[in-house]
Write a protein that binds this DNA or RNA. Sequence first.
DNA 1: ACGCTAATGGAAACCGTTGTCAGATTCACC
DNA 2: GGTGAATCTGACAACGGTTTCCATTAGCGT
Lengths: 366, 366
Amino acid sequence: MGRPIRTRRQATLASLAAELGVSRTTVSNAYNRPDQLSPELRRRVLETARRLGYPGPDPVARSLRTRKAGAVGLLLTENLSYAFRDPAAVGVLEGLALACEDAGVGLHLVPASPGREDVAAVHRAGVDGFVVYSVPDDDPHLAAVLERPVPTVIIDQPSLEGIDRVGPDDAAAVGKIAEHLVSLGHRQVGVICMRLARERNDDFVSATRQSGAHFHVQRTRLEALAVAFSAAGVDWAGVPVVERFDHTVDDGASAARQLLDAYPQITAVICTSDILALGAMAEAERRGLRVPQDLTVTGFDGIAEAERIGLTTVHQPVLEKGKTAGRLLLSSGERSAPKVITLPTELRVGRTSAPPRTVEEPWFGG
Amino acid sequence: MGRPIRTRRQATLASLAAELGVSRTTVSNAYNRPDQLSPELRRRVLETARRLGYPGPDPVARSLRTRKAGAVGLLLTENLSYAFRDPAAVGVLEGLALACEDAGVGLHLVPASPGREDVAAVHRAGVDGFVVYSVPDDDPHLAAVLERPVPTVIIDQPSLEGIDRVGPDDAAAVGKIAEHLVSLGHRQVGVICMRLARERNDDFVSATRQSGAHFHVQRTRLEALAVAFSAAGVDWAGVPVVERFDHTVDDGASAARQLLDAYPQITAVICTSDILALGAMAEAERRGLRVPQDLTVTGFDGIAEAERIGLTTVHQPVLEKGKTAGRLLLSSGERSAPKVITLPTELRVGRTSAPPRTVEEPWFGG
DNA sequence: ACGCTAATGGAAACCGTTGTCAGATTCACC
DNA sequence: GGTGAATCTGACAACGGTTTCCATTAGCGT
């Protein structure tokens, strides 16, 4: 047996029909509408197809004719590794893939080349719709997607007029963390966050860069922290924020180092992701700080590893996020009003947060 | 501004040409060959396109004509979550995605519906090639892929005639683990492995099931273990092997429980993945066994979390695996002989393996 | 003025299907 | 053997582009 040898020219539906002495319609029906022709003929068609090495109707031609690509596009952040190394992002991906699988459609990862502003890939993608996840709000790829005449759902992005959207209640979630820390007595805190814009800045973050951040989630979280701490009487302008462009445990560690070197009095490190928090914990250990006795560390996302080590974090339903987006997109038939879906988050207090050292004595000056 | 309102019928290249009073060729050239028409005319074309809300040439029609889909298909195991929850699999995915990004082509995840034997998705995928990863060797989807007249690369699969293949030197890798354990003095070992076939079996594995496993990697690893331990004088038939269909930390834990309940004398648990090993460690802790003093645990894959906790494991270059497969596929121009690429692995001894308790005394009865 | 070359735009074939609709064939049944 | 119903089949027109020649025009040196 073995696979058919691919000689010169591929067989087509037409050539198959000619070989059989039937019309193209009949061959097409043999594949797509078995009830439209006799079982006997169908058997003959399929057998001849096998003999001729005809692989069945060409998917592209079919798509053109039916105006259905059978796939949805996913536009991810420029840096793919960023997405794949973050379990939270992978969770979204998984949820989306599951929704697609349920619907029997493919998931097409659009190659959004980082360097060149090559939007062509967006134009080249044969898809019936797009999901856009975690790209900066000024990304040209996003603009290109919006120009395509197909339904689109955005995840974790600022609202766009007329576009479906799904995201967690980020502000509320961050509020829970802040409230937790404030109630524990922390007043000297530092923040480690992910990239805020497309330009690299592995350093402390100025106020203007904070408020001008192009990554919606990060901006929202920082703003919510500012609000919550200000409300608790902490001067937000005095709270150091360290940014890291790449999103790895090592970067979290180096950020923590930078933060604690400059502000040793800090009692709590707030990280805007669990991955960064893992790094912060490693750095704490490296410098002999006990967590949580000497230093409180919090994360964000609620990834599995965080749970295993007991990280205090805010859990968000990443799988649901992807699934919901997928379902929203795939169900977008003749819906009228665009939908906005907000998913719940949950504070999970672990073993990495405790009152600050200086508060160990019950009375402290106020 | 806002996005163009999609009234009745989409503009097409033809309608745009008519509006402009030029030929379709010219409009097409405006997009694809700017050097073929005057800048002035091109500007006019593009501007009119914007005005009419023409989103540029239809990708599907283009693909049909050019016979290039601009995407490669990825056929994953039936159960998507299985793939996404395993950092090793995600690493492969990442590598593949990176290779695709470099080449500017999309990555199309084929929805291989678990239940129904719905091979149609494979036929429906408009792609220029396929990568097949971690599917059982009797999977109908795999057969369907091989029937498509496009190049294919398989990862971690048994060799197929005429098909490019990339995989780690699994047998050698396992040999290193076995050798390590044997040299530490372990003779009473147990094994925890992933699913061996498409039918669920969350239980001990018979010899026939072992040798008849349809997942190539798992079968290879078990066989290599058998060889290595037999060579060391251990009767492989007496070594218990527990299988888990799902691939989660919890499943690893439950497998370890089942194993240790039945064989408390075991001194080392060999897991065929790090994820399972993490579960085994959790179970050891639960029953008060110290690792490695009371129990040695080893994994496989070398995922990041394993490294962080110091798991003894075999590291395989998962990212490279995906990248290599992608490059192989995308470079398959007029190559003659199919290539087989074997990637190196490396034993990483961590803090979870040590000599067995009973060997603490230098002399022990033989 | 004249021919030659380069630049520019156009006509038509083709990519491989699907879907519609009308016509052909078969068939059971009276 | 006639008749209508049921079942198949075939012709043809899209689907929305790309690409290979060709034709025209413009530029230019002499």
